[in-house]
Structures are given as structure tokens and as C-alpha cells.
Computed example of a mutant assay.
Amino acid sequence: MRQSPTPRLAAALFVGLLAAATGIGPVFAETPAKTLFSAERAPSAGGTQSLGFYSDGCIAGAAELPPDGPNWQVMRLSRNRRYGHPATVALIERLAGEAARRGIWPGLLVGDVSQPRGGPMASGHASHQVGLDFDLWLRPMPSPRLSVEQRETYPFRSVLKKGTFTVDDRIWNGHYLDLIRLAAEQPEVQRIFVNPGIKRKLCETAGRGRGWMAKVRPFYGHDEHFHVRLFCQPGSPGCKPQQAVGRGDGCDELDWWFNVALKPPPPGSKPPKPKPPLTLSGMPAACKAVLAAPARGSARPDAAPAGSSTGMEPAGAYASAFAPPAASVPVPTPRPAR
């Protein structure tokens, strides 16, 4: 019986077919790294190591965040992006429990963490590559809890007034500030990204004792979720740290954001030239070994551990617009701007 190609073999076949069809060499036909890493369905065997930078790296031996916990639910399960450093998984679980204990929110909706072996994603992020980033949706977990199917379509919700960079007070309340503050006060957290409009709201309402605000950085988007980033963790000497945040509350940066960065470009200006997709040759050398390593609990590199979710279940279980093709050759798509 003829077997369908594994994800890694399918990616390799794509490279060969492209080179044969175009006559170009393998260096120029190298598959985008996002295709290779998004094809991996399970973490690599062995110890945990974050390798490289948050936007140029991978993770070996990633831990898996359970899709459901006492005070959290992972969203968009078909993306298969709920893996990270054990410290990341532990932080998510701790934040969810503490937010519920303090009466901030009954539960957290967890967005993307990282892929099973990290690396660039086919859509949605430039970072989240080394298992030290995760997104928390800016809406509490509803009751009753969401089913697997509902989590594929449950809508994002911005906390800004439509068409503005101003927080909508019909949505926002003090619990949003409390949750972001709780996350920022954790010692593992290096910084948090929020929309400039949210940062302005925090500057206006944080009150005294605002040292935690230094970690909360304004950035494009991030109006329906906030992004938490951990420091490089002990035991990962190949992890490249990010520059430290300043000592102030960061509120003095907002004039630049609203007066320069968020202004529409002048009429007739050319859009920025997109960067070429990251390839494996441009990533830390150790990431090649991460891709080649066997999956945890299996002698076959492309087999997921027994009983784990592969993200390639039959339609009706995890099927969605975000689900990777189960049997077709991966086709590169443009790197998202965000």
C-alpha cells in the first residue's frame, strides 16, 4: 500500500520540483523556513533549549500547553501553536489561576504560543519562534466554556472604538488593567506588547506604584489581544536576549506613536518592500538539528507522540481556515506584515 508523504518529505519534494521546473540551484530554491517548521506536528525529543532570537530561532524539546485547564482554554486549536518553553507553559497556567483567584477574570483565552519546534509561522507573527512568547485574548473566557468547534470561529474583539486608537469604555474596565499588571509583575516577563491606544489608557488609569508599566510597550495591532514575552531562560545558552526596557513608565513615548508612527502615509508613497522569507540557512545552525530530530516519544521523526493532537484530525474536529493541508505539498505564502 502506497503511503502519503510525511510533512518533511513533502517539503523536500517541493524544493526538488521547484528546482527542476525553474532550473535554479538548491540554494535559491530553498524552501521558506515557515513551511518546514509549520509542517512539524510534535516537539523534538530531548531537553528543552530556546535557540536564537524571538523572531529568528526555534525551540528543542518544547512543552505542550493542555488545550483546556481549570481557568483557561486554548483558541484556534487547528493552528497547533500551543507549545513553548516549560517556563512559558507554567506561567500561563499560573496567570490563569491567579487571575481567577483574585476575581479578575474567570478564565483566560490563550492565543498562539509557538509551534511544536518553534520557528517562523505560516501566518500571523514574526516572533513566537523560541517558545517564549504567548498571546492572551482581551476578553474573558465565557461560560459555558467553548467547544473545540466554537474555538475555531469565536470572534476576535478589539477593545478600541471602531476606526480609532481610543479605548472603548463600553468594553474596558478595571479588570483589563489588573490582568495586564498581573502579567507584567511576573519576574519571568521581559515585556508586554499592547496597542498604543491601550498603553495610553493604562497611562491615564494606572495610578501609583506603576513600575510595572516599563514592561508594557506600545506596538502596532494588539488591540484584541496582548502579547507576553519571557526572558531567555536558564539552560538555554543559545537564546539571544532582547534589549532591556527602560526604567520609566514609557508614557513619554506615546507622542511619537500618535503623531508619527500611526499617521497614514502620504498620498502616492510607495509601500515598504516586503522582506524575503526566512530560510533555514539564515537561522541558527542548531535549528537544522531541531528539525531533523525524532519526535518526542517516537523513533520516527514525523510521528506525533501517542495520544497527542496532531492538528490534522478529520474534518469536524479541528477543521478550519487555519488548518494546514493534510496531504498536499506545502506551498509557501507571503510572510505577513504583522
Rank of each mutant, 00 (worst) to 15 (best):
K215P: 07
Y83I: 02
T6E: 07
G207D: 13
W137Q: 14
A319F: 12
G163P: 11
K34C: 05
G57L: 11
S127D: 15
D68A: 10
G238Y: 01
E30C: 05
E313K: 04
K161L: 15
G84R: 03
D223W: 13
G207C: 08
A303L: 12
V130T: 15
S143C: 02
P7R: 05
A303T: 11
A62R: 05
V74Q: 02
A126S: 14
D302Q: 11
F28R: 14
P294A: 10
D133L: 02
S50V: 05
G209Y: 01
Q115T: 12
P70A: 12
P142Q: 11
M121D: 09
G57H: 09
I104Q: 06
A42I: 00
Q3D: 09
R229N: 11
Y54Q: 04
T164G: 03
T6K: 06
S44T: 03
M1H: 05
P336I: 04
E253K: 09
T6H: 01
S269N: 03
Y220F: 13
A206C: 07
G207E: 13
P187K: 00
A42H: 07
W105E: 07
D112R: 09
D135V: 05
P66M: 06
A19W: 00
F28K: 13
M75Y: 04
A206M: 13
T6C: 04
C203R: 11
A327S: 14
A12F: 03
V228K: 01
G107W: 06
D252M: 06
R191I: 02
F37Q: 05
P267W: 04
P276S: 11
A184Y: 03
P144Q: 06
D133A: 09
G207N: 13
R102I: 08
R139C: 08
I92W: 00
S44H: 05
K161H: 08
L17E: 13
N80L: 14
T333P: 00
K161S: 14
I192M: 09
D178T: 07
F322E: 15
V260H: 02
D249F: 04
P218N: 05
S50Y: 11
A214P: 01
R145W: 00
T22L: 07
P155I: 08
V329Q: 02
T205S: 15
A90F: 02
P325S: 15
V159L: 15
A39N: 10
Y220H: 12
S143Y: 01
G52E: 12
G124V: 04
W172E: 11
A326Q: 12
Q115W: 08
T205Y: 08
G97A: 13
S4W: 10
G97K: 02
A206N: 08
D223L: 07
T35A: 14
V89Q: 07
A11R: 02
R217F: 04
K199L: 12
R217H: 03
R170S: 15
